[in-house]
């Protein structure tokens, strides 16, 4: 039984190949709950929190940005990252509490792959790319191919999630989430909407209303046909409502102790309507 605290990705990968059953821990905000609640008894641990390469983000030559898997949410809430990816900043601010945002990371959100993970709808909306690295190869997977289901993803046991590349879009983007109190609340339903004017595209992704994050591609393409996303500045109420209705049709919510399927379906229609109206207010 060991705890490895590597300082570089390659040290971490070495540790992983000598201990293939080791659990990777980043901020700890998901895994420690599993341990504290006796759902997980870890044997070998590789802690990634001291790997500096994972805790930085960079601007790429194509204009996209690459955020290390260990960058805590609090760094996304403000500053340049907020300017570049406003929806991510808004999502980051809804993650747990300030304490959680100081520890929690996109790498952790991706590793856990809960449909209620607050960062994930943003990654789905902007078509983010997940970087995975093993001792043998590095690969990049579209977020759409990465998340497979409730707490299931395409990471191989010998891989580490190292970063996420996020295209910087040209257009309005925002995130919104329903919870039953005004702070520190798990998502009942959430949505991220992002517009890219040059490609005349709108993207909307829903959280907590299906086994994975849901991209509402039918509603997106429908809206594209109704409305010039690059030149319009105002969306009519009826159009926004219809967009919301169509978004809700693509959701697959369930009844559970946090809410009902009926409410969640209703909520995402309202959220979609409001988001598109925020994008095209006047």
């Amino acid at each position: 039984m060991t705890v490895a605290i590597p300082l570089t990705i390659s040290e971490a990968l070495d540790a992983l190949s000598s201990n293939p059953d080791a659990r990777l821990i980043q901020g700890g905000t998901d895994m420690m709950v599993e341990i504290n609640f006796n759902h997980l008894k870890p044997h070998n641990i590789i802690a990634l929190r001291r790997i500096k390469e994972l805790r930085t983000w960079t601007k790429n030559t194509d204009g996209s940005i690459t955020i290390g898997a260990g960058v805590p949410y609090q760094e996304m809430e403000t500053g340049e990252l907020k300017q570049l990816v406003p929806a991510l900043a808004e999502a980051a601010r809804t993650v747990g509490s300030p304490q959680i945002r100081a520890a929690g990371t996109l790498g952790g959100n991706l590793g856990t792959c809960s449909p209620a993970g607050d960062g994930l709808p943003v990654l789905f909306a902007v078509d983010a790319v997940v970087h995975l690295q093993s001792n043998e190869v590095s690969r990049q997977l579209s977020i759409h191919d990465f998340m497979l289901g409730v707490k299931r993803n395409a990471r191989n046991a010998n891989e580490i999630i190292t970063a996420v590349t996020i295209p910087v879009l040209n257009g309005w983007q925002g995130y919104t989430k329903v919870g039953v109190r005004n702070a520190m609340v798990i998502s009942v339903a959430s949505a991220c909407l992002a517009v890219d004017k040059p490609t005349k595209s709108v993207r909307i992704a829903l959280g907590a209303v299906g086994p994975t994050i849901i991209r509402c591609r039918d509603a997106e393409s429908w809206l594209t046909q109704q409305f010039d996303l690059s030149t319009s500045t105002k969306i009519e109420l009826d159009l926004a409502k219809e967009f919301g209705r169509r978004v809700a049709l693509e959701s697959k919510p369930i009844d559970d102790h946090r809410s009902t399927a009926e409410y969640r379906r209703h909520a995402v229609s309202v959220l979609a309507q409001r988001l598109i109206t925020r994008a095209y207010p006047s």
Binding site: V3, G27, G28, M32, V33, N36, S97, I100, A102, A103
Partner: peptide, 8 residues
């Protein structure tokens, strides 16, 4: 400021 219950 972090929650020490969530730090291994």
């Amino acid at each position: 400021a972090v929650c020490s219950c969530l730090v291994m």
